[in-house]
């Protein structure tokens, strides 16, 4: 693998790892593992843990994919591996 390509791959893996940590935290951690603790905090009529499990995690997933797509376009250009 050329130097540039392997640097690009590293940058990609770094970004994906950060985003997947957030993915894990907002669903498994907030929505399931810590649900009882978070439920002590209320948003309106539901506990925060319950809210993350049924609403918040989905909104977070959307943000994550959007950020990934935007950041990758930038990284593609930075390492000059973009299309067209």
């Amino acid at each position: 693998m050329s130097n540039n390509a392997s640097e690009y791959w590293k940058a990609n893996l770094r970004l994906v790892s950060i985003l997947l940590v957030i993915w894990f935290v907002c669903s498994y951690l907030f929505g399931i593992i810590l649900v009882d603790t978070l439920n002590k905090i209320h948003i309106g009529g539901v506990g925060l843990g319950f809210w993350f499990a049924q609403q918040g995690s989905i909104y977070t997933f959307l943000i994550l994919i959007f950020v990934y797509a935007k950041m990758m376009t930038k990284i593609d250009r930075k390492f000059d591996v973009h299309e067209d």
Partner: peptide, 26 residues
């Protein structure tokens, strides 16, 4: 399922949307 299982059915909500994060990135 949500109606009768309540909170426990959250797994379907998270599971069937969170997969798109993996799909997009991996």
């Amino acid at each position: 399922l949500i109606a009768f299982k309540g909170y426990d059915a959250s797994v379907y909500l998270m599971g069937w949307t969170g997969g798109y994060v993996l799909l997009a990135m991996l």
